[in-house]
Amino acid sequence: MKYEVTYGLESGETKSFITKDYTRYPHDNRKFISGLHQIGFIKDGKTRMTWIPYKPGEKYTHIVEWIKIKEVSTGKIVETIECIR
């Protein structure tokens, strides 16, 4: 199943991409990398993860405000993440 990952930045800009075809929603795609809690997906047609920070770290800040993940075929929202400051 493919997912559309949409995220909003503090500047008001919205970005999105379509993921590769997963057999199930990857709940284990969250990691602590470079001082930030990040969620990662593989874009359609790519082989490496695209990482989006969802929690501010102790040393670093980021500009992502929210992340929405929905199924492409049905449009059903699978998960909404509000990034806490």
Rank of each mutant, 00 (worst) to 15 (best):
R30Y: 07
R24A: 14
N29I: 08
T19I: 07
F17D: 04
K15V: 02
K20V: 08
G35E: 08
R30V: 06
G35S: 12
D44W: 01
T23L: 13
K46V: 02
T47C: 07
I42D: 00
K43P: 09
K43Y: 04
L36H: 06
I39G: 01
K43E: 09
L36T: 04
T47M: 13
G40H: 07
Y25D: 06
H37F: 11
K46H: 08
D44T: 04
R48I: 11
T47D: 10
D44L: 09
T23R: 10
K15L: 14
T47N: 14
G35Y: 03
K43W: 04
K20E: 07
G40D: 02
G40P: 02
Q38E: 15
P26S: 10
D28K: 10
H27F: 12
S16Q: 05
P26K: 08
L36W: 02
G35C: 03
K46Q: 11
Y25Q: 06
G45T: 09
Y25E: 04
H27I: 09
K20L: 07
I18D: 03
F32P: 01
D44M: 11
H27V: 15
P26W: 14
P26D: 00
G40R: 05
Y25R: 03
R48T: 07
Y22G: 04
K20R: 14
K43C: 02
S16E: 06
D28Q: 14
N29C: 10
R24C: 09
H27G: 13
Q38M: 15
L36C: 08
F32G: 04
Q38K: 15
K15Y: 08
Q38P: 04
D44R: 04
R48P: 00
Q38R: 15
L36P: 01
F17E: 05
F17A: 09
F41M: 10
Q38T: 12
S34K: 11
Y22C: 09
R48K: 15
D28Y: 09
T47E: 08
F17Y: 13
I18R: 10
I39Q: 02
I39V: 12
I33Y: 05
I18M: 05
S16I: 01
R30I: 09
R48Y: 07
K46F: 11
T23K: 14
K15R: 14
K43M: 08
K20T: 10
G40E: 06
K46I: 00
D28T: 13
R30H: 06
R30D: 02
N29Y: 04
F32N: 14
Y22P: 00
K31Q: 15
R48C: 00
K46N: 04
K15C: 06
G45V: 11
R24W: 07
D44N: 11
F41D: 00
I42H: 03
I18C: 07
L36S: 06
Y22I: 11
D21K: 05
T19G: 01
Q38W: 00
Y22K: 03
K31G: 12
G35R: 11
R30M: 15
D44G: 01
K31A: 13
S16Y: 14
D21Q: 04
R30G: 12
I18A: 03
R48E: 12
G45L: 06
S16C: 13
S16M: 02
G45W: 05
L36F: 11
Y25V: 09
K20I: 12
K20Q: 04
